[in-house]
Amino acid sequence: MYKHPFFNLLLHGDEELESILGASIAERSTLHEWPLSCVQLIRMCDSSTIIYKVQSEFSIEAQFYKEASSSLLVRSRSIEQNDTLYALLLENIDAPCLSDISMDGY
């Protein structure tokens, strides 16, 4: 684990995530971050992708994904540490982000 350079967040290192995922990481890039969470896109060596999200201890999102069941939710996996849920591995949906879509013509 390593501390985020600016915020009070702990993130898993590549070796830890590779052990959890059972596959090698080719690339890791930050999509967005703020004081309560950091979201990264992880590209595996087989070209598949997954979203990694770590959160502050105040979030209930990981617990929600662990207990919720719906075909409307992306597949997810909570990562526990010391019986606390604070990190998520989420299915990456290959679609444009809203920030990349122009509203011209609407």
Rank of each mutant, 00 (worst) to 15 (best):
M1R: 11
M1W: 02
Y2D: 12
Y2V: 06
K3R: 13
K3T: 04
H4V: 04
H4E: 09
H4I: 02
H4Q: 07
P5T: 05
P5L: 06
F6L: 15
L9Q: 00
L9H: 05
L9C: 03
L9N: 04
L10A: 13
L10P: 01
H12W: 05
G13A: 10
E16P: 03
E16D: 15
E16G: 04
E16T: 00
E16K: 09
E18N: 02
E18M: 06
S19H: 10
S19M: 08
I20A: 11
L21F: 05
L21T: 06
G22Q: 08
G22F: 02
A23W: 03
S24M: 08
I25W: 04
I25K: 05
A26L: 10
A26Q: 13
R28F: 00
R28G: 05
S29K: 11
T30Q: 15
H32Q: 14
E33C: 05
E33P: 00
E33S: 15
L36Q: 12
L36S: 13
S37I: 01
C38T: 06
C38A: 12
Q40H: 03
L41E: 11
L41V: 00
L41N: 10
M44L: 15
M44C: 11
C45G: 11
C45L: 15
D46L: 05
D46P: 03
D46M: 06
S47Q: 13
S48I: 01
S48Q: 13
T49K: 13
T49G: 09
I50M: 11
I50N: 09
I50Y: 05
I50V: 13
I51M: 11
Y52F: 14
K53Y: 04
K53M: 07
V54A: 15
V54H: 06
Q55G: 03
S56D: 14
E57V: 00
S59Y: 00
S59N: 06
I60K: 13
I60T: 14
I60H: 12
E61N: 02
E61Q: 09
A62D: 03
A62L: 01
Q63A: 15
Q63K: 12
F64Q: 05
F64E: 07
Y65R: 11
Y65F: 14
E67V: 05
A68K: 01
A68V: 04
A68H: 01
A68C: 07
S69M: 07
S70Q: 07
S70T: 01
S71I: 01
S71K: 12
S76C: 08
S76P: 01
R77T: 04
S78D: 09
I79T: 05
I79W: 07
Q81G: 11
N82D: 14
N82Y: 07
N82I: 04
D83L: 09
D83C: 09
L85C: 08
Y86F: 15
A87R: 02
A87E: 13
L88E: 08
L89H: 06
L90E: 10
L90K: 00
L90S: 08
N92G: 06
N92V: 02
N92M: 08
D94A: 11
D94E: 14
D94W: 00
A95D: 07
P96Y: 01
C97F: 14
C97K: 14
S99W: 01
D100C: 08
I101L: 15
I101D: 12
S102E: 09
S102M: 02
D104S: 12
G105K: 03
Y106N: 12
